[in-house]
Design a protein around this nucleic acid. Structure first.
Lengths: 134, 134
DNA sequence: ACCATGAGTAACCTAAATGTTACTCATTGA
DNA sequence: TCAATGAGTAACATTTAGGTTACTCATGGT
């Protein structure tokens, strides 16, 4: 079983699809109809989202009569998790400023978390989304 | 600092953007030009990607003369990592079949990882991407 | 046997994302 | 001082994603 990171990350990029995974963790074996009842979009759109999730192997299903039972497959998420453990655990052990290894003289009040302002003083770029999602 | 999961996952959905983050882990402080040299797309497209990454707070930058120095900010990734640790570590402790808690009599040879075939026998849906990416 | 139901696809439309070229401005180096 | 360089934006075009309605087919229940 080989996982496609492009497919996995693309599948996770939409809030409704992440929500679907959460629902399938809470209630394994949901039908398409039962899953659709949690979303405002059409049943056909839920089917489209499921197709994206299935392509990433995040959801597997089995037919039970006219219904299809849906299950969350954690393996792709685990794959990313393991990779992130390898890649980033060193920087996570350090503090946030560690990201700027060569930075000298960081001053209080610096807006380091925002993209650098350009010389023109224009500041209205890379909008600062502050609401937490999923 | 509040992170937006929609923005973070959307930023990670494109292979080039994930590649940019990897490059910035390997070489903190890269300029836009240096970063652009690793990609086939135009410098302006790299700037657009950086704008998406900055909006998700995955990249922070500081001006150094006419150049902009770019740094990877691991906090948003850590946020997802921590959430996944909470949400999925129980199912990861179990085996893959644990995802089908109510499933009985799983037969060898079953294509369980594929989306269920419909009654028509059509099998050409939810294409089976087998190449590993990122 | 027949109606209801669950599921899947086709066709269509809109919005968002991806990508390019041309131009402008600030900084650096000679 | 001036040319070269790094960076950012505007405008445009194409592709992809998100979403709906209508229709079809298999299965379940009466």
């Amino acid at each position: 079983m080989v996982h496609d990171f492009d497919a996995i990350f693309a599948a996770l990029a939409h809030g409704d699809r992440r929500r679907m995974l959460e629902l399938l963790v809470q209630a394994p074996g949901l039908s398409v109809k039962a899953l659709s009842s949690h979303f405002a979009c059409s049943r056909v759109m839920v089917l489209k989202h499921l197709r994206v999730l299935a392509a990433a192997e995040l959801v597997i299903s089995e037919r039970a009569g006219r219904e299809r039972r849906l299950y969350f497959n954690p393996m792709p998420v685990r794959l990313i998790y393991d990779r992130w453990t390898d890649q980033y655990s060193a920087s996570w052990a350090a503090g946030p400023d560690e990201v700027k290894k060569t930075r000298v003289g960081s001053q209080s009040g610096d807006r380091e978390q925002k993209p650098a302002r350009d010389g023109r003083g224009s500041d209205g770029r890379a909008d600062d989304s502050s609401s937490s999602a999923s």
